[in-house]
Design a protein around this nucleic acid. Structure first.
Lengths: 358, 358
DNA sequence: ATGAAAGCGCTAACAG
DNA sequence: CTGTTAGCGCTTTCAT
């Protein structure tokens, strides 16, 4: 059996209560006693049993993170942020993978809700009704989804799409293709919303190429469709897809037909792909993950009248459509060759291509 | 306060003990009682408090997964496997990210060792001594590392490297480059071991290009070095790096100078990259993750004389250098499509693609 | 400032 | 088969 608080008490020749206080409420014991207790505790390698503690305090020290698929790169950054922030707050992370299955998700949520202080639901697929009824609904933060009554952390995908188009427009593009992701994707819907708005406000044409699995191999078909659609730029669902598109374009011997605009997980240093005017969205996933934890902990602890200040616009309000995490446009166009509208640049003039883009 | 076992007992008009039994040892109660209790429990939405349970049983129902970096794709598959297998065994996963920091790792391990039934250390950086002394060392499984006295799950990287070279040799290659990953990488060391062996046994020359960060952008330099070294094939540390190498080769207008042989995380369907004779190692990461959990649970539960059979050669023995998870060579050279030099294919008219986004 | 005692929700003997 | 009893390791009144 591991070393308990009792052992520490015995060795330090104090009562159990004193040990407890010395460790978790240092002000309540004499400095001398405290020092002795702490010393003994360390020497014995004592680690409090959180389960026992939680039994009385009601807090478990765990934060649940429910993700549709651990292996999805999109959640990686978020998970990392959640993990980091949680630890800084003395919490551990309980990871639950729903395998993209709503039924499993519901079960999982139920089974862990009792043993966590709060939960972060990433891209949850559950209905509002279901979400509302499960115990612990009050200590839940939604990530990448809005639902009335739930605090949420979101990425401003609509604005991201807008920025992207504005950028492309500034470069002279008028026909732009969008290759969407899964239909259920909240981010996809948001982007389409943003794109529709732009289409309405300007003379830019955004051609919808359809919905594609968010994988590398989708790129080939997308590239083909884009060429057929005679667009001069393509906005891909994420980096992986964009890689695929680029690869295909190269296969087809097209050097600079399009500006590849990429949104999504930005860990791949796309610049080295040396696609001309490659554009990337910087999505602060890790930051968003942290924000989710902060939000969660804030509401479950100091449940007083939240002043809302502090972290500024990073954290969304409990109101749906509150503030969003801004998405940043990053132009990574290291090897941008001057593009001549209407035609493709010839191959060969590589020197000029080394000039960093604007 | 959430619904407790007490509530269920009251509503079902039985004692608390009976409820407990009905739920966790059904054979010990009358079928009729059991049914009633279960019904009430469900109706009330009762979920047992695992913390309380663990206090008496000594088992927490948690498995700790300690990873150097959640955002590293390599661990994704493994994590997914761990997660899945754990759930099937009624366990939850406690995720701990050490941020590649050995000190943090030590702290983390200590702080969670009390609250988990066992731990899986992925690519641990800790010294044997440290690992041995921490409480719960007996319920630990190493993933991707061997250390005397610890059960481990490993990928047979050495053999993988051998397979790879054999394959390339069969294709006629005699000078092959290896672009390594981080020096601390266990897998890297294993591969080099395998490569060295092959060099010794055959007339194949394997040129060591050095160590590179396992990222896309490393590919450029690697490609350049490979060309200088006048090799006809390159073995890259992982898929991401390989992508980078391929990209660079294309930039330099070299179409089929090398066989790209890629090892590592194989989630990117590289085939679509249509590099001729692109070769990939299939690394059963998810399976490995599952194996780790099985191994962990097996040793902590039925601690009898393990017969070693059952899962066959999937699980390594407690002995270091026991059996390994085999790595499989996968030839994904599907799209070695005949290219049309110059020009690109005609654009057919496609009505579906031309639907303006509204 | 410290100790004694009660009890968190649950399981595991021990009776009946 | 079922109820009663005794804790698991810890925090927290309530005394002292």
């Amino acid at each position: 059996m591991a070393v308990t608080i009792r052992d520490v008490a015995r060795h330090a020749e104090v009562s159990i209560a004193t040990v407890s206080r010395a460790l978790s409420a240092p002000d309540l014991v004499a400095e001398q006693t405290r020092a002795r207790v702490v010393a003994v505790a360390r020497e014995l390698g004592y680690e409090p049993n959180r389960a026992a503690r939680s039994l009385i305090t009601g807090r478990t020290g765990f934060i649940g993170a429910v993700v549709p698929d651990v292996a999805n790169p999109f959640f990686l950054g978020a998970l990392r942020g959640i993990q980091g922030a949680a630890r800084e707050h003395g919490h551990h992370v309980l990871l639950a993978d729903t395998a993209e299955d709503p039924v499993a998700e519901a079960e999982l949520i139920n089974s862990i809700s009792r043993q966590v202080d709060g939960m972060i639901l990433l891209s949850s697929r559950l209905s509002v009704a279901r979400l509302r009824e499960f115990p612990g609904a009050g200590r839940t933060v939604l990530f990448n989804r809005v639902l009335p009554g739930f605090p949420a952390v979101l990425l401003d995908s609509a604005d991201g799409a807008r920025q992207l188009v504005a950028h492309l427009a500034a470069l002279g593009h008028r026909r732009i293709a969008y290759a969407g992701g899964p239909r259920e994707s909240f981010a996809d819907a948001e982007r389409r919303r943003g794109l529709a708005k732009v289409c309405q406000d300007t003379d830019i044409r955004v051609i919808d190429l359809g919905a594609f699995p968010p994988v590398f191999s989708s790129g080939a078909r997308i590239a083909d469709l884009a060429l057929e659609a005679r667009v001069t730029a393509v906005i891909a669902y994420n980096d992986l897809v964009a890689l695929g598109v680029i690869a295909r374009l190269r296969d087809r011997r097209i050097d600079v037909p399009v500006d590849m605009s990429v949104t999504g997980f930005d860990d791949i240093p796309m610049a080295s792909m040396s696609a001309p005017r490659l554009t990337t969205m910087s999505v602060p996933l890790e930051q968003a993950g942290r924000a989710a934890v902060e939000l969660l902990l804030r509401q479950s602890e100091g449940n007083g009248a939240g002043n809302g200040s502090g972290s500024g616009n990073l954290i969304s309000d409990p109101q749906p459509r509150g503030r969003l995490l801004p998405v940043r446009l990053v132009v990574r166009s290291s090897t941008a060759a001057p593009r001549r509208p209407g035609g493709w640049t010839s191959r060969g003039s590589r020197e000029a291509a080394d000039t960093p883009h604007k």
